[in-house]
């Protein structure tokens, strides 16, 4: 068996592609003073004391008009209504499921906010309560939308659309939630032969192409047909591309993912996990996105 060893000083020195150079980043750490001026609004990651605005997390300062926030390097997902999330069922309870969504608190999926067979307006009977585990059990993955955010920050989910529901065969990948860009659509059928769901909570689901008409069943029927090896390879490649982008802090949405996939084609799938190749792909993607200014 051969072993591939790379020394860090042999790494290709990419010319500095620092796009932030035009506008220097204002980096702060907890306790740093952001501004002494009055009249600013206090956003996430800051606190006010004696009319002085301090940072409470390490990260870079973002200013939108009068609102000042500090964007942390990584944080747990804080939900917003309408976000598409991917979660894992961790508990089946009375009339609801508990779902892990990488949020500070567990999210809930009420029995009344899922689509049950037999129409939208069907009354939930006791029979349905007893059958809950048959529909979703502990460990199942679901895609869902955030219906509401409670006062303590925990999320209530719903799957009242046929595109949401239980996920069948595919791969799950976790990236920092801050890297996922909010878009109109988070479900993409990529031309390279796979479907991705980019959850706002940083969970990315890559699966074989979903057929628009027949496969959107809300997860009642799970397709356990054998996935052929070429599709698997595409999925693995997309996984590695997304990991490469996440490791090098490139924003993830369908365009960057497709770009990265395009650039990765000259390498084998397994080569993509090498740090220098991952970095190269991420940088190329960053450049292309920057030039096209998506």
């Amino acid at each position: 068996m051969s072993i591939d060893i790379r020394l860090s000083n042999e790494k290709l020195q990419h010319e500095s592609t620092d796009f932030s150079a035009e506008r220097p980043l204002h980096l702060v750490i907890p306790g740093d003073i952001i501004t002494r001026e009055a009249g600013y609004m206090r956003g996430h990651g800051t606190y006010m004391e004696n009319d002085v605005l301090y940072a409470s997390v390490a990260g870079c300062v973002e200013k939108v008009n009068k609102l000042i926030c500090v964007k942390p390097l990584k944080s747990r997902y804080t939900g917003e209504v309408g976000d598409v999330v991917i979660g894992r069922i961790i508990e089946v309870g009375q009339k609801r499921w508990r779902v892990e969504t990488h949020s500070k608190l567990d999210s809930v999926l009420h029995l009344s906010s899922v689509n049950l067979p037999g129409g939208e307006l069907r009354k939930r009977s006791e029979e349905d309560e007893r059958m809950m585990r048959n529909y979703l059990q502990e460990g199942d993955l679901i895609s869902a939308e955030v219906q509401s955010v409670y006062a303590d920050g925990s999320l209530s989910l719903h799957t009242r659309s046929l595109k949401y529901g239980k996920l069948g065969q595919g791969s799950l990948l976790q990236v920092p939630a801050s890297l996922v860009r909010r878009r109109k659509n988070h479900f993409h059928n990529l031309p390279c032969g796979a479907s991705v769901i980019i959850g706002n909570n940083g969970y990315i689901w890559i699966c074989p192409t979903i057929n628009e008409q027949s496969d959107k069943t809300g997860g009642f029927v799970t397709n356990y047909e054998r996935v052929n090896s070429s599709t698997r390879e595409v999925i693995a490649r997309l996984m590695n591309c997304a990991t490469a982008l996440a490791e090098n802090m490139v924003v993830i949405y369908d365009t960057t993912l497709l770009c990265a996939h395009e650039f990765s084609l000259k390498y084998e799938v397994k080569e993509l996990i090498k740090p220098d190749i991952a970095k190269e792909i991420a940088l190329l993607t960053k450049q292309k996105i920057h030039n096209n200014d998506y």
Partner: peptide, 11 residues
């Protein structure tokens, strides 16, 4: 705690 991005008043 800083690395975990837990909000802190000070270090």
């Amino acid at each position: 705690l800083v690395d975990a991005s837990i909000e802190l008043y000070d270090i």
